[in-house]
Design a protein around this nucleic acid. Structure first.
Length: 553
RNA sequence: GCGCGAUUAGCUCAGCUGGAUAGAGCGCUGCCCUCCGGAGGCAGAGGUCGCAGGUUCGAAUCCUGCAUCGCGCGCCA
């Protein structure tokens, strides 16, 4: 619709140049926006104002010339010049109801587009270390990454979802040590459990299981061997749990990528070699450094420590090098906001490797504060008693959990009230939206029970959709595709959430004032057609967020 | 100290990348049940968009400075 209008304006502009009403010949980017105030029509263009300087005429004069040159066309019902020089366009109601046909025809595909042109994008998210269960913060990262990926897919990008497993390095050793110490305790030894070991109860539980299954075997092993074995065992075990938790959360990855694999295939050392050959690294104080300062970082970063061990950063360099070699146009990393200091250096790496730093985009996900009836839920990381994602999903359900995680922009800190999430009332945004969907379904069931025959499109008379609220609903439905595109291009799935809340509000309001199933058959048919469009769009949008659209609740 | 991010209604937050009278939810006040699910709806009050400058036809939005808050600044991961 917008494009058609843009075309019309472009033609009018050309006509003005041709008949010399306007002189500059400069064709600016025609901006069309949707005014906040409905009195200003359905669309508005600021074209006349932006041209004022080049034309050396007042915006209103330009606007008049443009409006004069505008072809008569059936889809515009009113064109006005207003304010300092806005041109406001009001569309004929009929063309808004055309969107209902589009929705009906496209069904689940309504809202999909090809603006991504098949560009390859990888979204890497969660990527929690396999040293403990996922907690609530990981959950938000999971919901965000998955929704970003979905929204990108809907916009025509080719998307891969990847989980990077940090299964190498110190943390696995620490995990092995933690398990070994707990195991010794379980076996009756008096050993101290240091602060820098993993404190959570799950470690102790595993240790008990191991003792039960394998007896005292690990006591007899060489300590370093025991640590390695237990670290590997524990890591695999925890990772399996993470997969289960994510599955229960409705998230599946296309690829699980192991850091250890990078070492096994010598890709870390290969990556280091690439850097050296490009002159991007140097030795100092017995360590190897990356010249990230050449690309905007604060200081250079260590790749290989003086003791010969590579850093996590070295793995990440190799990992991102490898990612881009897989042919992605853009790589998106979803990180906890506490890692924001890391962004600059990774972009420096990408830059140093000869790519546009914007090819790596980082979405930072802020903390989640867990509340219960407004009171903070204690989350002591010291004792390891954090709230796990699993617990929260079990308590409030997948849908509420995912929806609430996406309620705010990712970089905005989020309050998550467990009681609110469970409440079945208007305070709870997820129920509010799902309920709208269930209500439409309910209406459709009633229609069926009453024996309402659904007519073919040709037999429908949409002119009975004459109410302002009906037009408003149709207009909102028409905005869904661009909402998805905006969400994709800005990597901001919360825009879909806001869209949904508004659509649900409009629907509830309409429902409350008007009956769909009325005595007049033509009106009933037309309203059912409208309301089914609402249902489809609600379902499509919820689906993008990984939230179910229930038929009854 | 340096860097990053924030600052919008009593509270939690949007604000479509520079547009016209700044929006929503919660909370508050007052209404609406012979009605397809009241698990709802309607209305009202509530703002010098942190402060001060600048850019221009036009600024919550862009630039500069300041203030306050949060986070990050290991040869950890």
């Amino acid at each position: 619709m917008k494009d058609r209008l843009r075309q019309q304006i472009g033609d009018a502009l050309q006509a003005c140049f041709n008949n010399s009403t306007l002189h500059s010949g400069v064709v600016p980017d025609v901006q069309i926006e949707i005014p906040g105030n409905p009195d200003h029509g359905d669309f508005a263009s600021n074209l006349a104002m932006t041209m004022a300087r080049a034309e050396k005429k007042s915006p209103r004069q330009i606007a008049e010339a443009l409006v004069e040159a505008l072809d008569d066309c059936d889809f515009l019902s009113k064109v006005e010049i207003a304010g300092p020089g806005f041109i406001n366009f009001t569309l004929a109601p009929g063309c808004w109801y055309g969107v209902l046909d589009e929705i009906t025809v496209k069904g689940k595909d309504y809202g999909l587009s090809q603006v991504g042109k098949g560009q390859k994008i990888q979204v890497e998210f969660v990527s929690a270390n396999p040293t403990g269960p996922l907690h609530i913060g990981h959950g938000r990262g999971a919901a965000t990454g998955d929704a970003v990926a979905s929204v990108l897919q809907a916009a025509g990008y080719e998307v891969q979802r990847e989980y990077y497993i940090n299964d190498a390095g110190n943390q696995m050793r620490t995990l092995g040590l933690s398990l070994l110490l707990r195991y010794r305790q379980v076996c009756g030894e008096q050993v101290e459990f240091p602060d820098d070991c993993y404190q959570g109860d799950y470690i102790l539980d595993f240790a008990k299981e191991i003792q039960k299954a394998e007896g005292l075997r690990y006591l007899e092993l060489d300590e370093s061997e025991a640590i390695e074995l237990l670290g590997r065992f524990g890591g695999e075990r925890i990772l399996a749990g993470i997969r289960e938790d994510l599955e229960a959360f409705g998230i599946t990855f296309d690829n699980w990528y192991s850091e250890q694999g990078l070492f096994d295939r010598d890709e870390v050392s290969a990556g280091l070699k690439v850097l050296k050959e490009k002159g991007l690294s140097y030795e100092k104080d017995g360590a190897v450094w990356f010249r990230t300062t050449d690309f905007g970082d604060d200081k250079d970063r260590v790749l290989v420590r003086s003791n010969g061990e590579t850093t996590y950063f070295a793995s990440d360099v190799a990992y991102h090098l490898e990612k881009f070699s897989r042919g992605f146009d853009t790589v998106i990393d979803v990180w906890g906001a506490d890692h924001h200091g890391y962004v600059q250096r990774m972009k420096a790496v990408v830059n140093g490797l000869g790519r546009n730093p914007d090819d790596l985009q980082v979405i930072l996900v802020q903390l989640v504060s867990l509340l219960r009836e407004g009171e903070p839920v204690a989350m002591s990381t010291r004792s390891g008693e954090f709230v796990t994602l699993r617990e929260v999903v079990e308590e409030v359900g997948k849908d509420a959990c995912r929806f609430i995680f996406l309620l705010r922009r990712a970089d905005s800190q989020l309050d998550f009230d467990l009681e609110l999430a469970k409440r079945q009332s208007t305070d709870n945004p997820v129920y509010y939206v799902q309920y709208a969907h269930a209500r439409v379904c309910s209406i459709c069931r009633n229609a069926e029970e009453q024996g309402v025959q659904i007519l073919e499109r040709e037999a429908l008379d949409l002119s009975s959709l004459a109410l302002a609220e009906e037009l408003t609903l149709a207009k909102h439905l028409a905005r869904y595709p661009e909402t998805v595109i905006n969400a994709a291009q800005n990597r901001e799935p919360h825009r879909v959430v806001y869209f949904l809340q508004e659509l649900a509000a409009q629907f509830h309001s309409y429902y409350n004032r008007q009956r769909v199933l009325v005595d007049d058959p033509a009106t009933t048919q037309a309203r059912l057609y409208l309301v089914k469009g609402v249902r489809t769009v609600l379902a499509n949008a919820l689906n993008l967020l990984g939230v179910d659209a229930p038929e009854r609740m």
